[in-house]
Design a protein around this nucleic acid. Structure first.
Lengths: 332, 332
DNA sequence: TTGTATGCGTTATCAC
DNA sequence: GTGATAACGCATACAA
């Protein structure tokens, strides 16, 4: 492979000059620039990004840590990040954290060792304190789907409470008065926020929150079906069910169907996240849109601005959820 | 950040010795090894992987090019690759090709410029010739979901024809005699192979292939629904529908439902790929399992063996599809 | 505007 | 076993 040296010889200039035409930061006369460019073309020269990194102490790579590489949610997020970064000639190194504290920490260390210029983290298991400590290091971090007051400028997050509010409000607006709720794991912050929004909407409409109509799920299909059966087995009637995410709703719908219940005739359901699945299942699931793709773009933009000094970019930290009405809610 | 030099000073040894204890390739006395290790710990030393790469001309990174970062299919594949590589301390650089020739080529160049030690490609738009030419370069490549005779050792692929055969055979075994077929885009190789398997199963059972019962879709939901309506509008009756992938099947199911048709009572359907979706929709979709996650593992193992010289690994190039029976086929 | 010289943090090839 | 020292391919401060 041709090096900058080969190019300089062929063009009859110095190493430094070649470097200059590549980086366009110092003035080079048109004539010599052309000579260099020609030599490059002739040799099929391609810069060695590794050497560039070592010399400039910039790896031009940003590390991404997600819980899982599969799953509809992370895919959309990574897609947004990659698209944004790729046009800026930066690249993406990806690791999975598996929602496990040890694994998340290892992933972060792994990325830092790789000398990423910045990190985009979608972590759930590590503590706020750990992240605050981490942010004091030399590698900038931006947090997706997490809000830590002390790090608020580094957070790109959704107003989960508003989302929970909107979902429940949509059900109430359709005339329902007795609503059940299946949450995610209560240790997760977004679970709590969504539930809070649910209660807020309830309170606003003068409906009392009934603990017997609430079930703690796992954000997975299983929690949804299990929750639905448990709630049904209780002696409290309900005509609608608010689920903390779409997978939970899918599980609940499955369980309802097994009990010969029709959706939405017998029971109305709403989800949260608006993953592709929501549009595929039958009936199509009403839900709350979580603009995770856009948020991925924004996280990348944050880095372009703060780490790569592209001052022209504007950053938005908090995103708003939006109600998506489809066919899983019945007006009563 | 502490460097190897700092460590050597603190440990009272030379640079070279420190490098030796890191790489474990030359004998170092236990005593000095301990001194070095202690110094490392004390300084919190972390090797600079960029410098290592430059000096060793090994980036310890493998590039992955997929069509899209989102989508159930690629997620499972990347997940398999990352898991395998991570344990070997290699990392993954990801780019998206968007099934577009120009974009795929750019992505490949991008990854090569990044000095990846090897590439895992899931490409659809570039030609066989391009890939054959590429394989002559200094960066090894392995192809997923593609079979090119001249490059057969570098291919990790599914026996798509067998899959098509199994799907159709399952339908026939349930007693159906008039089957319709919605394919993917005919320019794709796997589309052709799956269709070939379909025809093979038909022939084997003495059922004539009827071009009027075939529709060329797009591997997406839209092609499925559109295809179903078109087929229904024709004057040829059919009791079962074989779809070239699950998304197509989902689209067809949706269209069927809109025509008040019950599945599987009125029409039996089978898909292909076994993406998560297949298990979520109602009725649960019978399909052909595509072990893409395992294939990702295998692609990574190919690289571990051939590029990183881990001779202990065994490579399997062709994977077999498997029939997954759920609730979308009726026995007649 | 262009050239020279040094450094980036390792690995690897020599010697000792 | 261990220590100098030359690459690796480029960026950049300093001169010219």
């Amino acid at each position: 492979m041709a090096t900058i040296y080969d190019v300089s010889v062929l063009a009859g200039v110095s190493l430094a000059t070649v470097s200059r035409v590549m980086n366009k930061n110092t003035k080079v006369s048109e004539k010599t620039e052309k000579k260099v460019l020609d030599a490059m073309k002739q040799l099929g020269y391609r810069p060695n990004s590794i050497a560039q990194s070592l010399a400039s102490s910039r790896s031009n790579s940003v590390g991404i840590l997600v819980s899982e590489l599969h799953g509809p949610f992370y895919g959309a997020m990574m897609s947004g990040i990659e698209a944004e970064l790729r046009t800026a000639k930066k690249h993406v190194i990806i690791a999975a954290g598996h929602s496990d504290e040890q694994s998340e920490k290892e992933g972060i260390e792994f990325l830092i060792d790789r000398r990423c210029d910045a990190l985009i983290l979608h972590v759930e298991a590590v503590s706020d304190e750990y992240l605050i400590e981490l942010s004091k290091g030399s590698t900038p971090i931006v947090l997706i789907n997490r809000y830590i007051p002390a790090l608020k400028d580094n957070c790109i997050f959704l107003d989960n409470q508003l989302g929970g509010y909107l979902a429940t409000k949509a059900i109430i607006n359709s005339g329902h008065k007795s609503l059940a709720y299946i949450s995610g794991p209560m240790w997760k912050v977004d679970t709590q926020a969504r539930l809070k929004g649910h209660k807020q909407a309830l309170a606003e409409s003068g409906i009392e929150f009934n603990p017997l109509l609430m079930f703690e799920g796992d954000y997975l299909e299983k929690g949804g079906s299990q929750g639905f059966r448990t709630l049904k087995a209780g002696n409290v009637e309900f005509t609608a069910l608010v689920c903390a995410n779409d997978e939970t709703a899918a599980g609940a719908m499955d369980a309802a169907r097994q009990m010969q219940l029709n959706i939405p005739a017998d029971i109305s359901i709403i989800g949260f996240d608006n993953i592709i699945l929501a549009n595929y299942i039958h009936p199509k699931l009403s839900t709350i849109d979580y603009p995770i793709g856009e948020m991925g773009h924004m996280a990348a933009r944050w880095i372009l601005k703060n780490t790569y000094k592209d001052r022209s970019l504007d950053i938005k930290n908090m995103f708003d959820p939006a109600l998506i009405l489809r066919n899983s809610i019945k007006n009563v």
